[in-house]
Simulated assay, not measured.
Amino acid sequence: MSKSIQTENAVIEAIKNRRTVKKFKKDAVPTDKIIELLDAAVWAPNHKLREPWRFLLFTGDGRNKLAQAIDAEMGEDNKFSANIKQVPAVMLVVLEEDPRQNIWDEDFAAVSALVQNFLLAAWSEEIGTFWVTKPFLYAPKFRKPLGIEAGEKIIGMIYMGYPDVIPSAKERTPAKDKLTLFE
């Protein structure tokens, strides 16, 4: 078997085996490891190498800053900020928005590809992830204390840590059921 086919199978297996993890052990994920994973993720395809992304990483006591921003929008009695303090690391992925719709679409796709790269890279290092979006991500009271400006969109929060529970796979609709073929 050729090396390229073996590599292709490894990639396909990684894609199929990755799981969304919502329960993490308390062990910290080293910041250097997260940066290493980001360095792999930035190889996502992005038109004209615009690299329209930036990241805010919250670990250790830094998670309190994120929890305070959530509290500013949601009030102090909410499940989200309490949960943030239990997750070993949380990263916001931010898109630098372009006012031209076609560029915005390309950049949004690029940042989404970057997130998928990160999730797969993390999984390859036995780090579980959970890509989540919440309504408070749009709120000025949440965004301002974190330095997220007008013209920036939070693509999502990525919770990460070493899995305590790995969920089983859920069935997917075969692609052929959604394929229109022109021959």
Rank of each mutant, 00 (worst) to 15 (best):
residue 3 K to W: 07
residue 5 I to L: 15
residue 7 T to A: 11
residue 8 E to D: 08
residue 8 E to S: 10
residue 11 V to I: 15
residue 11 V to A: 08
residue 12 I to V: 09
residue 16 K to I: 02
residue 24 F to S: 08
residue 25 K to Y: 01
residue 26 K to P: 02
residue 26 K to W: 00
residue 36 E to P: 01
residue 38 L to F: 13
residue 39 D to Q: 14
residue 41 A to K: 08
residue 42 V to Y: 07
residue 43 W to P: 00
residue 43 W to Y: 13
residue 43 W to E: 04
residue 44 A to C: 10
residue 44 A to K: 04
residue 45 P to H: 10
residue 46 N to E: 02
residue 47 H to F: 04
residue 50 R to Q: 07
residue 56 L to H: 11
residue 56 L to I: 09
residue 57 L to K: 03
residue 57 L to N: 07
residue 59 T to D: 12
residue 59 T to Y: 03
residue 68 Q to H: 12
residue 70 I to H: 04
residue 71 D to V: 00
residue 71 D to L: 00
residue 72 A to V: 03
residue 74 M to G: 02
residue 80 F to E: 15
residue 80 F to C: 12
residue 81 S to C: 05
residue 83 N to P: 00
residue 83 N to W: 07
residue 84 I to E: 12
residue 85 K to A: 06
residue 86 Q to K: 12
residue 87 V to T: 15
residue 93 V to G: 04
residue 94 V to H: 01
residue 95 L to T: 04
residue 98 D to P: 00
residue 103 I to G: 02
residue 109 A to K: 10
residue 109 A to G: 12
residue 109 A to S: 14
residue 112 S to G: 09
residue 115 V to A: 09
residue 116 Q to L: 05
residue 118 F to H: 07
residue 130 F to G: 04
residue 131 W to N: 07
residue 132 V to W: 05
residue 134 K to P: 01
residue 135 P to I: 01
residue 137 L to M: 15
residue 137 L to E: 13
residue 145 P to L: 05
residue 145 P to E: 14
residue 151 G to A: 06
residue 156 G to Q: 05
residue 157 M to K: 09
residue 161 G to F: 03
residue 162 Y to V: 12
residue 164 D to A: 12
residue 164 D to N: 09
residue 165 V to I: 15
residue 165 V to M: 05
residue 166 I to R: 09
residue 167 P to C: 00
residue 168 S to N: 15
residue 169 A to V: 15
residue 169 A to Y: 14
residue 174 P to C: 02
residue 179 L to K: 11
residue 180 T to H: 13
residue 181 L to H: 13
residue 183 E to L: 14
residue 183 E to D: 15
